[in-house]
């Protein structure tokens, strides 16, 4: 097995009496799509927030690319190649789609203490930004204000921004949240296209999508990993059925 790109060791986080992450050890391999699934309240978003540095874990460590990043400030992590996207679309609403991505390119292009040249005419920013928009299929909407994009397009923009920081590992927090079937299918297509060029840690509720794109799946229940394995192993796992999939199929 190759060296993992990201690993957590005995990660723990609780809020008051509520345990959100419980002794979690998890590995993501280079170029792997690793999905994390689990019922509501399983601590998936909390996990992403700890990996991206917005929350500090109570205990345990996070390693990325051979480096201990547990205490590294959030803004430094994208520079190592670890970038997140948000479940609730988090874009710069008053800027155009292109400017949103250009800002992400700018973040990756070193410091921004440049006071004179207009950023809106800077090919060093615009070219990579257009490229990222093209990757997610938004190139024709480049000049539209982000606030005016359709919901699905905003989700695509969200991913384009993350891609523009040239991550080795992208933390995707429910990329299909609030999408209709058509938009979801497009997103699955996009993930499949990107698969193999970088690693993903994918948190998602849409099981069809997860099983379609994931190389491996970890099942979280109450912050604890009850199983990790290839999709068919997870499908066949009795614990998982009981704890999670069973519940859901009953509910449906």
């Amino acid at each position: 097995m190759a060296e993992p790109l990201l690993s957590t060791r005995n990660l723990a986080k609780s809020f008051g009496g509520l345990t959100a992450t419980d002794d979690l050890s998890l590995d993501v391999l280079p170029r792997e799509v690793h999905a994390v699934i689990g019922p509501n309240g399983a601590g998936k978003t909390t996990l992403i927030s700890q990996l991206s540095g917005e929350l500090q874990p109570d205990a345990g460590s996070i390693f990325f690319d051979g480096q201990d990043i547990t205490a590294l400030p959030a803004w430094r992590r994208p520079h190592l190649g670890l970038t997140r996207s948000f479940q609730i679309t988090s874009i710069f609403r008053d800027m155009s789609a292109l400017q949103n991505v250009a800002l992400a390119v700018q973040a990756h292009a070193g410091h921004s203490f440049r006071f004179w040249r207009p950023a809106a005419q800077d090919p060093e920013l615009l070219e990579p930004a257009r490229e990222a928009l093209r990757q997610v299929g938004l190139q024709h909407r480049a000049d539209v204000a982000a606030a005016a994009l359709a919901h699905g397009e905003q989700r695509q923009l969200e991913i384009a921004m993350a891609l523009a920081t040239r991550p080795k590992l992208l933390l995707l927090d429910e990329p299909m949240a609030g999408m209709g079937p058509e938009e979801s299918a497009k997103m699955v297509e996009l993930l499949q296209k990107l698969k193999g060029t970088l690693a993903f840690l994918l948190v998602e509720h849409d099981m069809d999508a997860v099983f379609a794109v994931a190389d491996r799946i970890t099942v979280l229940v109450y912050g604890r990993a009850i199983a990790t394995g290839r999709p068919e192993e997870i499908r066949g796992n009795e614990n998982v059925r009981q704890a999670y999939l069973g519940e859901e199929s009953l509910a449906v």
Partner: peptide, 21 residues
């Protein structure tokens, strides 16, 4: 300029700025 884009971006969405690095 790039500086201004950062300032304006931070007004609009500070959390995202940090997430971008």
């Amino acid at each position: 300029a790039r500086f201004g884009m950062v300032i304006r971006g931070a007004r609009s969405n500070e959390q995202r700025m940090a997430a971008l690095g």
